[in-house]
Design a protein around this nucleic acid. Structure first.
Lengths: 353, 353
DNA sequence: TGTCGTATGTCAACTCTTTGTCTCAAACTT
DNA sequence: AAGTTTGAGACAAAGAGTTGACATACGACA
C-alpha cells in the first residue's frame, strides 16, 4: 500500500531570516537573539553559514511572546511555556492589554470616561510605562497617531501603511482597532470638519485604512457555524470608514461578515441580509447627522428584515437619530466595545430582545 | 552583417530590455544582472547580439524578488524559490504581517508540496519548473468570470477572493487586470443595469475586488524618480471600482500612484495633485453619464492644475462627456491599454502637448 | 526610605557573510 | 559620436554572528 505523503503537508512553509522575523513580530533582532540565548525561547535552524532561519511556527511563537511581554508578563517565565499555553495566555490577556485602554468610540467628543483605564485590567497596568522600549520606536499610542497623521498630510500611503502595521504588531488585532484606528478615524473626521485637512486627505487616509483593515481581518478562518452579519451604511451615508472598522471588528469577534460598502437603500440591505440569513445588520452613520429620510429608511429596513435579525447603528451621527428611532427596534451602539458585548450576547443566547 | 534576431525569435509575449525591466521593478540594471549572475534568479533570453530580453513572467518574478528582499528576505536564499512560492512568500510577509497563523494563507489545492517544512532551508531545490506554464483547472477566462459571478451572487467573499487570486497566478498581474478584472467590472455594471443583480451585489463585489487590487498593486517598489499620478473620481461619481483598477494598472506601469477614493471636488483633486507634484490625474466616470455639472468641474480642475499635468478620464460614461470636453485639455481614454500607452509616452518624452 | 540582587533590554567590539555598487574595456545601438 | 549593454573583478556598506559589559526597573529586605 502506498502512502501519499505529498499531500499531507498541504502548504509549503517558508524559513524567514531574522530581519523578516523582526518586522513580523515587532521585536528587534537583538531581542530575538537574546531571548534565544538566555531562555531558549526558540531554536531556529541555521544556514550553512550560521545564519538563523525561523519557521512559521517559531514566528508565531515569538509573536505570542511579544504580545505577552507587552501585556506585562516576564519573558523569563513565559519563554518556557508551550506555544499552546502561550496562545491561551495571550487570549485571556488580550482583553486586558487592549480593552482597558481607551474606550474607543467612533464619535470623538463623547469618548470621555466611559470607563477608567485600569478597570478591566487582568494584569496590573503600571508596567505599561516601562514597556515603552520593548517594542521598538513607538512609546505611546500618541506617537503612532502622530506618525499616521503626518503620513496622511503628505499623502504617503506607504508610510501610513507601515505605521498601521507596526501598530498591529505592537497592539495586536484588537488593540490596533481600539487604540489606533478608531482614534485616528475620529481625529480625521474632526480635523476635516475643522478645515485642518482637506477632503482629499480624508479620502486618502480612508482608502489606506480600509485596505489595511480588510487585510487585517482577512486571515481569520471563519467557522462554518459562525453567525453572519451584514455591514454597510444607509443611503446617503458616503463615509464608509466606520463601517469598515465595524466589519473588521465583527470578523475579529468571530462573525462571518458580509461587507457591502457605503450607501445602500433599505431594500438592498434587507435583500443581502436575507440571502445570507444574517443575524445582525451593522450600520455606520457619520455624516450627515440630519438626513430627514434616514429614519424612514431604517424603519423600512426593520420592516423588511426578519424579526430575529437585529439592527445596530453606530458612528458619530448615530445619536442624532436616537429620538426618531425610539419606535423601531434599532439598537444604537456608539462605542465599539459595547457593540462587541451585544454581539457576544447574541451568539450566546438568541438575544432575547 | 549583423542580423537582428529580435523580431525573428518566436515571441510569445513581449520581451523587455533591461532598462524597461529596471523601471518596472524598481531595481537597477546592475542589480538585475548581478542577481542573474550570482543566483540565476532569472534567465532572460538574448537577442542575436547578446542583449538580455525579459519575458513578462520574468519581470513578475523580479518584482516579487524585489518585494521579498524589501521585506527583509535574503536574495541569496529566495532567488532559488519557485515563482509560485515567491508569490505566497510575498503575500505572507507583506500582506499578512499580522496574520496569526501564516500557514493558513492560501491553500491552493494545486500546490504539490514536494517538501516538508524543514527541508527547504539548505537543500537544493527539487526541480519543478515544468509546472510553470501549465494551466490546471481554468482553461478559459470565461470559467473564471463565471466563478467570480457565482461568488458575487452568493455574497461569498472568500470564494471571490480565491478566484481572483487564482486568476492572478494564472495570468500574472497584468493579465488579471485585462482579462478578468476589467471584464468582470463591465459585466457587473451591465447586469446591475439590467436588474440581474442588485446594487448590494455590485457593492459587495466592488469591495472585494478593490481589496484584491490594492493588495495586488501595493508592495511594488517604486523608483524614487517615478512620476506621480493622482487617481480618483470627480464629484458625484460614487463608483470607485474603475478608479481602483486604473490605480492598480498605473502602479504596475511604474507610476507612484496616490489613490484618493471616489467623489472629490475639483479643488480637492487639484490640491492633492499639486502637493504631490503629480504629472497626471486619472479620473474614472461610470455613472451618471449626464451630470451637467461635471464638465464645469473638469474645466475648473484643468484650470487649477499646472499646465504640464495631464488629465485623463476613462470609464463607461467618459464618452458621454466627450463633446463638452473639446475645449479643455482633458484626454479621454476608455480602454486601459491606450491609457497605458499614453502614460508611457509621458514618462518617455515630456509628452509634448 | 534606601540599598542590593535579579531580570531584561541595549550597546560595543570584532569577525565573517552577504549584497549592492563601481570601474573598466570591449561590443553594441542609434 | 555618444550613449548603453555586457562581463569580470574589486570594493564597500550593511547585516548577522558572538561575547561581554552596562543600564534600568522591579522586588525584597533592612
Amino acid at each position: 500500500m502506498r502512502l501519499y505523503f505529498v499531500y499531507i503537508s498541504p502548504v509549503v512553509s517558508f524559513q524567514h531570516p531574522i530581519q523578516v522575523v523582526a518586522r513580523l513580530t515587532g521585536l528587534t533582532p537583538h531581542v530575538i537573539r537574546v531571548w534565544e540565548k538566555r531562555y531558549q525561547a526558540v531554536m531556529p535552524t541555521r544556514t550553512g553559514t550560521n545564519r538563523r532561519l525561523y519557521s512559521d511556527a517559531e514566528v508565531d511563537r515569538l509573536r505570542l511572546l511579544a504580545q505577552a511581554t507587552a501585556a506585562g508578563h516576564k519573558i523569563g517565565i513565559i519563554a518556557k511555556l508551550e506555544t499552546e499555553d502561550l496562545k491561551r495566555l495571550v487570549a485571556t490577556v488580550s482583553g486586558g492589554a487592549t480593552a482597558p485602554s481607551i474606550a474607543a468610540v467612533l464619535d470623538t467628543e463623547s469618548q470621555a470616561g466611559l470607563r477608567g483605564p485600569a478597570e478591566i485590567a487582568l494584569v496590573s497596568e503600571p508596567q505599561r510605562s516601562m514597556r515603552s522600549g520593548t517594542t521598538r520606536d513607538w512609546d505611546h499610542d500618541g506617537d503612532l497617531l502622530r506618525a499616521a497623521m503626518e503620513a496622511t498630510a503628505t499623502f504617503d500611503s506607504g508610510a501610513l501603511q507601515r505605521t498601521l502595521e507596526r501598530a498591529a504588531v505592537q497592539f495586536g488585532h484588537n488593540g490596533v482597532l481600539h487604540r489606533v484606528v478608531c482614534p485616528l478615524a475620529a481625529d480625521l473626521g474632526e480635523r476635516w470638519q475643522q478645515g485642518l485637512i482637506t477632503a482629499a486627505h480624508e479620502h486618502f487616509a480612508s482608502a489606506v485604512i480600509r485596505d489595511f483593515l480588510t487585510r487585517l481581518a482577512r486571515p481569520y478562518a471563519v467557522t462554518p457555524s459562525a453567525p453572519c452579519a451584514v455591514v454597510t451604511t444607509p443611503s446617503g451615508q458616503l463615509h464608509e470608514l466606520g463601517a469598515v472598522i465595524v466589519a473588521a471588528a465583527a470578523t475579529h469577534w468571530g462573525w462571518k461578515t458580509v461587507y457591502l460598502g457605503p450607501s445602500l437603500p433599505a431594500a438592498e440591505i434587507a435583500g443581502a441580509a436575507t440571502q445570507n440569513r444574517a443575524r445582525a445588520v451593522l450600520l455606520s452613520v457619520v455624516y450627515p447627522a440630519d438626513d430627514a429620510s434616514l429614519p424612514a429608511e431604517l424603519a423600512q429596513l426593520r420592516q423588511y428584515l426578519p424579526d430575529d435579525t437585529e439592527i445596530f447603528i453606530g458612528g458619530r451621527a448615530a445619536r442624532a437619530y436616537a429620538p426618531a428611532l425610539k419606535q423601531v427596534r434599532v439598537h444604537i451602539q456608539t462605542d465599539l466595545e459595547s457593540l462587541g458585548d451585544r454581539l457576544e450576547e447574541m451568539r450566546a443566547n438568541r438575544f432575547g430582545a
